[in-house]
Nucleic acid binder design. Structure first.
Lengths: 242, 242
DNA sequence: CGGGACGTTGACGCCCGTCAAGACATGTGG
DNA sequence: CCACATGTCTTGACGGGCGTCAACGTCCCG
């Protein structure tokens, strides 16, 4: 049962946060500080001392690494309920940058206090553990994508992921998918170029799979086609490996 | 300071294992069972219940995911000192397969016992935590590779990584790099094809960067050239990002 | 209204995946 | 020890996907 698990695990994480005992939740609220950011604002700079841990309340955040040649690889987008900055590498330094894609409200905890709290609260410890494990499986899913999928498959998968995110958030059926990020961001995420993103969406449009109205709003006309392009996330029943 | 950290962290992990208190180490040895495997032997099957945790004593192990279309993506190679099976996803089911690349000796622990032991030994807990964190940064490094590096850069990086592994293991300077895995394995790891691996090595040979004698033995003639091809792992001092 | 950021579309070329045919190596049985 | 089969590496030929450069269209904001 490979790949395609990233959404399940993330929402599972969110549910688990709510399952913490009341006292811990109260303490969490006490020591946290709300942060509001305009779109485009830097949140974390790679290499800075890892002073804070954040959770996203509203908006979308991009997490990225900068490359020597000036490019950047977006390693993930964060949505409400996701955590930012949990990955503690040895030096207690952020291993990545992060910035607000849209206007964002975050909740910030001083790392020290949060770590102390997690010593007492095993539930919180497990939460962080799960967060890292989630990030790992997500990263591995992306490795599969980048290594073996065509750009078209990646874009289709991305659209479906965005759609599922909004369906999960609103709980309702979706036909208009909001794409808050710029094409260049998506490109940096999927390991391709902004032009190719544009071209791919254009062919989807020409094939009547989507309808593009206002930028940042994509209407999906043919879900089945999108999923077909995805290339079959999961193996069929009784399929033979190798 | 992006990328290129994978080796440091791995060896740091090994050192930390030795830093466990004696009682824990004794218990660890008690409940472990040695396993010897011939090359090619399956160790873990994706989807099976995660019964054991292993550590590699000798040999090389490949960890992989199988794709619906029958291909496989090797997510990593494990060398002596590395752990296998620590990443337990929610269902306590292995999220990947593993097989012996060379003849291997492993040490196996029943998962339950090891988890119970880690409840008492915070050092062990931190060890596992670090193991997962390492895997995460390794996965993210690979994302950078796959997204933005040419095959030539990937192969050069791979060679250097192998060389560093052996230098680290023997402690001496190296000029002959042993490549125990098949080209197809390397290809599945780097997200390319066996033919392209062969071709790339051939051009390295023609450019007098390496010398190829017996298969599985590569003599590096020009380290500087290899590193140059790598594409500059780290940013230069004072370099400007974007 | 002018300028800047972003998206779209075209043209071009090359990297690399794929198919196919040999070249070696290794092992097995006669 | 040789003949043969099997697995692996090498090399060639071919073509398509997609990265890059460049020009243009569109939207927004001062």
């Amino acid at each position: 049962m490979p790949t395609g698990t990233e959404n399940m695990t993330r929402s599972a994480l969110r549910r688990r946060l709510e399952a913490l005992d009341d006292k811990t939740v109260a303490r969490l609220n006490e020591i946290s500080r709300p942060v509001d950011l305009p779109a485009g604002q830097q949140i974390i700079i790679e290499g800075d001392p890892a002073a804070s841990i954040y959770s996203v309340q509203q908006g979308v955040v991009s997490v990225f690494k900068l490359l020597p040649d000036g490019r950047r690889q977006i390693t993930g987008f964060l949505y409400p309920g996701d955590f930012l900055g949990v990955t503690f590498n040895l030096g207690a330094v952020y291993g990545y940058g992060a910035e607000a894609v849209t206007h964002c409200s975050l909740r910030a905890w001083p790392r020290g206090a949060l770590e102390r709290l997690s010593e007492e609260a095993p539930g919180l410890r497990r939460l962080f553990m799960a967060e890292i494990a989630d990030e790992l499986t997500e990263a591995q899913d992306r490795i599969l994508m980048l290594a073996h999928r065509s750009v078209e498959e990646r874009v289709a998968t991305f659209l479906l992921t965005m759609a599922r995110h909004q369906a999960g958030a609103t709980g309702t059926r979706i036909e208009v998918v909001e794409i808050p990020m710029r094409w260049a961001d998506i490109a940096d995420y999927l390991g391709t170029s902004a032009e190719t993103i544009s071209r791919t969406l254009s062919t989807f449009r020409d094939r009547h799979i989507i309808h593009t109205g206002k930028r940042s709003e994509i209407v999906v006309l043919d879900w089945a086609a999108l999923e077909a392009i995805t290339g079959g996330d999961r193996p069929e029943e009784g399929e033979i490996y190798r």
